[in-house]
Design a protein around this nucleic acid. Structure first.
Lengths: 344, 344
DNA sequence: CTGTTAGCGCTTTCAA
DNA sequence: TTGAAAGCGCTAACAG
């Protein structure tokens, strides 16, 4: 049986109320009582039941963070940023992993509500996440969407500039002489995929290169294997691309695997660029030419927006924060710059 | 204001009890009542308050997972495995990140207790985590320790065979002709660091190579920068190592950075091996020679052990599971095997 | 400074 | 099949 407040009170020879006051650091407790209560707490290993206190106070001191995949280095950084800010503000972060699965997302969303988190940070699985968010609104739980906008939703949002970023990557490939540029993307139900495809098209249009639909292949973002298979389709074209733009840092692993199987060396036989870095990998071997988004900042700013709402010091208007990405040229695009970024 | 059961009951024209029965899938509810209640729940977007139900039932349907760093690919996989098994068993996973910080670990531990999780999976920060675990015992909360044993603690444990793994890596380096082998490790308060150092020593002894303490440098495991600085010390020795053994996959990034700064090419000028893979990186560019531990299995088995305890179908005896690691030779050790594993 | 009373939202128990 | 009463562990509001 778990230790309860009453047991602590008995042991300390006071009422439950006094124990409660000690725990909540109320000043109105005599030195003697406080000492005895603290001793009893230590001896018994008492941990206050937040279900009970939360029930009354409507405060659990927790915020929920829901992401498709903590294993994705991008989301990992988002989470780290969020946790850092939340912790400093006295909140604890509870993390949920949806695997990009709508049902699981819905489940965890309700879970978080059920546990009475005070607010939520969500990287939605896609546009279809919208109905799930209605539950949050109905229950008056503030939340901030991260990374992916949701068509038709108008809440707070922190995202990158995917259109501009993709355009920049493609312009770079074009400048290097590429004309057949393939793209491995994910479902268009995800806004970043839509936006990056648009950036791709814009860059092509600006260079008067005709858009060829067969150069666009779709794969699930979470799954390296799917990206691999999609890439194989590209490489099997009669007129295969000389460069590939991967929609993100997970898909790019599949692209590289497919290329390696075919004996294609990067960048000699195939140029490769993508969105989002692979944190540890890029430090270990700086190789991929990428648009690096400030993932950690996505997390810190989103948390800040949420904390504002929790503090009630915010208007009803939605706030949208768009963070620019950095273009980092390394080897995989074939531009032959020094390996070490610092040497640039 | 959040939607409550009473509101649903009023709207459906029944008592709260009937709503409760519908939610908990009791069969003793008339068809008509059930339909009306379900309609009311949907209209209102009602989500049952688990703080309240958990308060009574002592069941929250959640298990807590506490790790030093979700960004570490090894722990990420552990978490994924745990979540998969937990989810299938009807449990939800709540994740906490301690950054290897004892205070934070303690805080999250109490948090999890406070939220009344039914059990915990813990990758402890180190031996000093032991006092924190007493709180769990006092409150009768089952838990399983993962990856790192804790001196003096005797609960369920899932870990790798660090001694044998390290010995294998060092034997390999010795076979390649190395005699000056450095090791970048972390605090000996972490059992895996202790064990890997022991494996290192055993391999040296077996080859009758004298152990030189100055070849062992210590760094915080979480921090790439610290590993970098530690490596610099090794490279500054009058008689620097020709090979380095990194205690894990995070430290190895710092080692590589330091080597690159010095203009040392791996493996030409310096051989490099380590424990644990860098998931995406290794698929993208198979380069590091490593002992790969079955991280996901650490998570699934630990969860299984925990679920057993939760089901109460287990004796009081502790259970220890030791999982072997795979030795994967790639390029960084200088053994010149084909890049592609499949080609072996 | 300390204790008592009431009740958070829900489920258990029991009676109808 | 349904509801009323009691209470999970805690704290707000009050009284002393």
């Amino acid at each position: 049986m778990r230790v309860t407040m009453r047991q602590v009170a008995e042991r300390a020879g006071v009422s439950a109320m006094t124990v409660s006051r000690v725990i909540n650091e109320s000043l109105r407790v005599s030195e003697g009582a406080r000492t005895r209560v603290e001793a009893a707490i230590a001896e018994l290993g008492y941990v206050p039941n937040r279900l009970a206190s939360g029930l009354i106070r409507r405060k659990t001191g927790a915020i929920g963070v829901i992401v498709p995949d903590v294993a994705n280095p991008f989301f990992t950084l988002v989470v780290r940023g969020a946790e850092e800010v939340a912790w400093r503000a006295g909140y604890h972060v509870i993390l949920c992993n949806t695997q990009g699965d709508l049902e699981r997302e819905r489940g965890y969303l309700e879970d978080m509500l059920a546990f009475q988190v005070e607010g939520l940070l969500i990287v939605p699985a896609g546009d279809q996440s919208r109905p799930s968010l209605r539950v949050l609104k109905k229950n008056d739980v503030p939340f901030v969407i991260i990374d992916r906008s949701i068509a038709g939703h108008d809440g707070d949002l922190v995202q990158g500039d995917s259109v501009a970023g993709a355009r920049r990557l493609i312009e770079h490939l074009i400048a290097l002489g590429h004309r057949h540029i393939g793209m491995v993307t994910e479902t268009s139900a995800v806004s970043t995929a839509r936006d990056r495809l648009q950036g791709y098209k814009e860059a092509l249009a600006a260079a008067r290169i005709q858009f060829r639909p067969e150069l666009i292949v779709e794969a699930s973002a979470i799954d390296v294997g799917a990206a691999h298979d999609a890439t194989v389709k590209l490489l099997d074209l009669l007129d295969p691309p000389t460069a590939i733009f991967s929609v993100n840092n997970i898909a790019v692993v599949g692209v590289a695997e497919a290329a390696r199987e075919r004996g294609l060396a990067i960048p000699r036989d195939l140029a490769l660029v993508c969105f989002d870095d692979i944190e540890h990998a890029s430090r270990f071997l700086p190789f991929l030419t990428v648009m690096v988004q400030p993932a950690e900042t996505f997390g810190t700013i989103a948390t800040q927006l949420l904390l504002d709402r929790l503090a009630g010091q915010v208007s009803e208007r939605r706030r949208i924060v768009v963070l620019p990405a950095d273009f980092i040229v390394r080897e995989s695009c074939g531009a032959h710059v020094p390996v070490d970024d610092a040497a640039a």
